[in-house]
Structure formats: structure tokens, C-alpha cells
């Protein structure tokens, strides 16, 4: 039997933390609760977790700061942000700080559990090496999927988790067409709220990194009315 996934719940509202712990444990996860930002970082240093559910408004150190702190050392660790702030701007701030997903309070229990499941599934998929190796070379460029580092046209840089996941899916299906829906489903895990335009924006960003002429792409090619295809010799 698989070992239970370990989740760190960072929530200062004791009632909410208790309720989350109860439900996640019922789903078979191992749960640790931290009551503030600093305690969360201490927990992260002492233990290994598979996912963090992070509240935004926390005493001692806020959720955004916690996420940024984690991202300094680990660009891939999955974080689900939970917050009473629900505007598009708040959501964008959370995602920019390094959250993989953002859920506004009050939330529905089944949706939370689905998102947790989705993130963990994507995490498992993402952890597997690409075509049997962590580093993938194409042309003079490379992507290290284990660290999130990449070498593009203008030198080395760090890919965000989502960018790396898009590249991973395209590369594993090298030479085949990957539809926008496939990308949304595999990388974002759900298609509600999301538009296919989101995928196009990500592709545009990736082309800026990896294409000499983003208007005339050589590696990440658009297949009209279908999706995208990754072409490379290696």
C-alpha cells in the first residue's frame, strides 16, 4: 500500500484548521497543523510534506511571505492558497507569490478535496523524469525539470511550476499535437474558470524564452485549430 501523503495545513483560525484536519485525515492523508507563518517554515525545515494548504492572513508572518520564502529554495513544492480575499487581484498576487492553486473562503468541502487530489496527482506526474532524464536538451538550450532551471536564448533563468509543467507535457509528447484542453486538464487540473487563452499566454511566454524569433517558432509550433506541438532533434 502507498504511504499516506503528508499535508501541512497553515491556518490560524483554530476551528477551520481542526475541520480541515478532520476531513483530510478522513480522506487518508497525514495532516500537520501550523498556527502561524513562522511555525509553518519551521515545520517545513523539520519534515517533508507533499502539499501545503496555506492561509493568507496569518500572525507573525503572512501567507504571501511564507510562499515566497519556500519558493526561494524550492520552485516546485505544491502550495494551495486559502483566503478570504477573493478578488482577481488577490488571486493574482497569491499565484505570483508561488501558489499552485487559490481557493477563496468560504469554500465547498468537495471542491477543496478535489483540488487537493488534483494537485497531488499533478505533483506525482511532474516528479517523474522526462523521457527518462531530469535534464532535457534541445539545440543549445536545456531544461532541468528537477530544479526548474532552464537555459534559454538569453541565458539561464528559473521556470515557474506551471511553465515547467507545460514544457514537460509538450516534450513528453514530442512530435505529437497536444490540445489546449489536454494542457488545461493536465497542468491546471480543472477547466472551469480557466480559458484556453490562459494556455496561449503561457505558450507566448515560453516562446520568448526558447525561440529566437517568437513570431516564427521553431520548437513550440502552433497546429491550427488543434493545439501545440514540440519539435526538436534530440
Amino acid at each position: 500500500m502507498d504511504q499516506a501523503k503528508k499535508i501541512l495545513v497553515v491556518e490560524d483560525e483554530s476551528h477551520l484548521a481542526k475541520g480541515l484536519k478532520f476531513n483530510l485525515e478522513r480522506e487518508g492523508y497525514e495532516v500537520v497543523v501550523a498556527g502561524d507563518g513562522k511555525a509553518a517554515l519551521e515545520c517545513m525545515r523539520e519534515h517533508t510534506f507533499d502539499l501545503m494548504i496555506l492561509d493568507l492572513m496569518l500572525p507573525r508572518m503572512g501567507g504571501i511571505e511564507v510562499a515566497k520564502n519556500i519558493r526561494k529554495n524550492d520552485t516546485r513544492f505544491p502550495i494551495l492558497m486559502l483566503s478570504a480575499k477573493s478578488t482577481e487581484e488577490d488571486r493574482a498576487t497569491g499565484l505570483e507569490a508561488g501558489a499552485d492553486d487559490y481557493l477563496a473562503k468560504p469554500f465547498h468541502l468537495p471542491e477543496l478535496l478535489l483540488r487537493v487530489k488534483g494537485i497531488l496527482r499533478r505533483w506525482d506526474w511532474y516528479k517523474q523524469p522526462v523521457l527518462g532524464q531530469d535534464i532535457f536538451h534541445f539545440g543549445k538550450m536545456w531544461i532541468n525539470f528537477a530544479t526548474g532551471k532552464a537555459n534559454g536564448w538569453s541565458g539561464e533563468f528559473l521556470l515557474t511550476v506551471k511553465e515547467a509543467q507545460v514544457m514537460k507535457l509538450l516534450i513528453t509528447k514530442k512530435g505529437q499535437v497536444v490540445t489546449r484542453e489536454d494542457l488545461l486538464k493536465t497542468v491546471w487540473g480543472y477547466d472551469r474558470e480557466m480559458e484556453t487563452r490562459t494556455v496561449d499566454n503561457f505558450i507566448a511566454r515560453l516562446r520568448k524564452h526558447f525561440e529566437k524569433k517568437p513570431q516564427k517558432p521553431q520548437y513550440i509550433v502552433t497546429v491550427r485549430e488543434k493545439g501545440y506541438q514540440f519539435n526538436a532533434d534530440s
Binding site: 483560525e13 476551528h15 475541520g19 478522513r26 492572513m57 478570504a84 480575499k85 473562503k105 468541502l109
Partner: peptide
């Protein structure tokens, strides 16, 4: 508006979580 909405949502989220816990678990 921003601080009040946060103040209102936190206890509401907790109540909703427990009601749904009793419904689904």
C-alpha cells in the same frame, strides 16, 4: 469593505466547513 469582508468570511467558512463535513462524512 476589505477588512469587513474578511472578518465575515472567516467564521462563515468555518460554519460551512462543519455543515458540509456533517453532510458528506
Amino acid at each position: 469593505v476589505s477588512s469587513v469582508s474578511h472578518e465575515l468570511k472567516s467564521p462563515l467558512a468555518s460554519i460551512q466547513l462543519y455543515l458540509e463535513t456533517m453532510k458528506y462524512q
